[in-house]
């Protein structure tokens, strides 16, 4: 499979096509709109479904297999803001607090990007470690905390700025609804195991693809509404939103190979490293670093990096992984 075939296979999947449809609906000012409760309901469904499946896989594989790659995922999540912060601060000449906020978003992860990647691997028959959901769970918070610390330091050096609230950020990063649901469902899955899986399978497995497609239609609408903000963020962030995921994707794949993951698992760690958060991180950052400009971090993560990863990034990270696993 060449890289063009790989990208084509991804672009023609229902989920990605629905995402594009959502963007078109938004750009053409269609009155298509999802009720908020449906959006929240689908988020809960997707997180619980992947959490549960991941938990069952952890019970099956045993913690001995999972802890090292999970630790690598945590380290990776913490490292990304540390290297992207100086790039944003000095390369992009952004204020410290904005650089810290964006760095936190890129170190943290997007669950939907991860789900789309697992979907893609399944569709083209690339096996992957099913317990990889655990990496998603542990990578969400470390970067947010590092980002808030960087932002607090940057804010303190400026005179008369309000103090960033690390405690609120920690609460949001550890108990926010997405991380809470994901970790909770992982534990439920791990305790109930294969037997439990049989009971919930008709609900959590068979309809999953359909819900994901519907959710990506909504994400297309949400991302499409931010397209107008692209002009506000400037060329630097446009380039940052595409190039940094590529670098992080390679880093993730290399980390994955180093800790003994297979091709599929390493690809997923690459996808996680490349993805940027747009639910957990904005909530934590908006409250704890209110001085940071939300247009910058939301637009770059939601309108640049998310669409890039969903359409082109995922197959590219797989090809990167193939290169390292040759």
């Amino acid at each position: 499979m060449t890289i063009v075939d790989a990208i084509q296979a991804n672009l023609l999947s229902p989920a990605v096509l629905f995402f594009v449809l959502g963007i078109i609906a938004s750009l053409t000012k269609s009155d298509l709109k999802f009720p908020e409760s449906l959006y929240v309901g689908m988020t809960i469904y997707l997180l619980v479904a992947i959490g549960f499946k991941g938990g069952v896989a952890i019970a099956d594989a045993g913690l001995a297999k999972v802890w090292l790659p999970a630790l690598a995922a945590i380290v990776l999540g913490a490292l990304i803001p540390l290297w992207t912060y100086p790039v944003l601060r000095f390369g992009g000449k952004l204020p410290g607090v904005d650089a810290a906020a964006i760095a936190a978003h890129y170190g943290s992860v997007s669950a939907v990007t991860f789900i789309a990647a697992t979907n893609y691997l399944q569709a083209i028959n690339v096996p992957y470690e099913k317990y990889a959901t655990a990496f998603l769970a542990v990578m969400e918070s470390p970067a947010i905390l590092i980002g808030v610390i960087l932002g607090t330091l940057a804010t303190k050096s400026g005179a008369g700025k309000p103090k960033a609230n690390l405690r609120t950020a920690m609460h949001e990063a550890l108990f926010g609804r997405s991380i809470f649901l994901l970790v909770g469902a992982l534990l439920v899955g791990a305790f109930s195991g294969e037997e439990g899986m049989k009971k919930v399978e008709p609900f959590f497995v068979a309809p999953f693809q359909g819900v994901l497609a519907l959710f990506l239609l909504e994400m297309g609408l949400v991302a499409g509404r931010r397209v107008g903000d692209l002009r506000k963020v400037g060329l630097f962030l446009l380039a940052f939103g595409v190039l940094v995921p590529l670098v992080n994707g390679v880093l993730g794949v290399v980390f994955g190979k180093f800790v003994g993951l297979e091709l599929g698992g390493a690809t997923l760690l690459g996808v996680l490293a490349a993805s940027a958060s747009y639910i957990a991180a904005p909530a934590a950052i908006r409250i704890s670093l209110p001085d940071a400009n939300p247009t910058l971090y939301l637009t770059s993560s939601l309108a640049i990096t998310f669409p890039f990863n969903i359409t082109l990034g995922i197959p590219v990270y797989l090809e990167v992984a193939r290169f390292f696993f040759r």
Partner: peptide, 20 residues
């Protein structure tokens, strides 16, 4: 309660809790 409208921050659709 969640509201919709438009203002200095552009249009707010109230569709997603985060951006409402």
């Amino acid at each position: 309660f969640t509201v919709e409208g438009a203002g200095a921050g552009g249009e707010r659709t109230g569709e997603t809790r985060e951006f409402a």
